[in-house]
Nucleic acid binder design. Structure first.
Length: 272
DNA sequence: AGCGGAACCTGTCGGC
DNA sequence: TGCCGACAGGTTCCGC
């Protein structure tokens, strides 16, 4: 489901509702997203702890608990968090209920069961997050860092943009959109991009991610904000999922190709 | 070391 | 209607 802007939107929406709350009770349905922990072990570790903060790193949501423990969550394709106040029996895709109060339940729902949760200490958390690349919206993503990334790989630029160990947070949809906006062909090898083109890509990454956050992410198929309202960025998609439709710049048909098992959408006339 | 491909899951959609 | 294959926003592991 979500890439950086969607997770950011989720954290912003969730934060005021969960920070300061104590996890009073937990119900686990379907396979627990934290293997190899048994549900009872998970429940024992987390129940009665207080949520003192909720943050995002790349596409991860991090619940900061007290006494000190971190619950690291990745939604993968179909994971969702929903706040609700009335539940009788679990719906088909509910995986975990976190009871935060009398009429306040945080539901983790996950159709494909690919989502993951992980418990961490301060040390294991920083080890885990240390493997990720830079946050694209921070100054750490700058020309010199990006030059280095480009120079040391033989891969196409689309693959580099999605490589979480280099830049963390861009997924398949935003990668296509960024390259369209920047006018760069997705199959270009990163190492042969000019300095100008590299600057243009960095600029566009930041521009598009910021705009997407402003518009509260996108709702493609089933992503919902925590309040169940839809994001608006999908209205501004130029190429993703638009095979055969006219390019917004030149009106020639948008193409779809497959790169390393993922769809890429682009305009062969506007992207070089 | 870095790369490509398979695997992990379930659901939906289009074609025949 | 029913079946089948392709496809879906992500990450990790494995072999080369």
């Amino acid at each position: 489901m979500p890439e950086l802007p969607e997770v950011e939107t989720l954290v912003t929406g969730l934060k005021p509702h969960v920070v300061g709350k104590t996890i009073r009770k937990i119900n686990v349905f379907r396979p627990l997203p934290i293997l190899p922990l048994k549900p009872t072990e998970f429940i024992r570790a987390v129940e009665s702890k207080k949520i003192v903060d909720l943050t995002r790193r790349a596409k991860y949501l991090i619940f900061h608990l007290k006494p000190e423990l971190y619950l690291l969550t990745h939604l993968r394709m179909t994971g969702k968090f929903i706040l609700t106040n009335h539940l009788n029996s679990p719906e088909k895709h509910h995986r975990v209920w976190f009871h935060l109060g009398k009429r306040k339940i945080l539901v983790f729902e996950d159709v494909r069961c690919l989502g993951k949760m992980e418990l961490a200490t301060k040390v294991t958390l920083s080890q885990k997050l240390g493997r990720l690349g830079v946050e694209p919206l921070l100054k750490k993503l700058n020309v010199s860092y990006f030059q280095k990334c480009c120079n040391e790989t033989i891969r196409p630029i689309k693959a580099l943009l999605m490589d979480q160990s280099k830049i963390a947070g861009i997924g398949n949809i935003y990668a296509s959109e960024i390259l369209f906006q920047a006018g760069i062909h997705p199959e270009r090898q990163a190492k042969f991009l000019t300095q100008m083109e590299r600057k243009q890509i960095i600029h566009t990454i930041k521009l598009i991610l910021k705009k997407a956050i402003q518009l509260q992410g996108m709702t493609v198929s089933d992503f919902r904000r925590v309040d169940n309202k839809i994001g608006r960025f999908q209205n501004f998609l130029n190429v993703y999922g638009k095979t055969g439709q006219p390019c917004p710049k030149c009106a020639r048909p948008i193409q779809r190709i497959v790169q390393y098992q993922r769809s890429t959408f682009f305009c062969s006339h506007c992207q070089h």
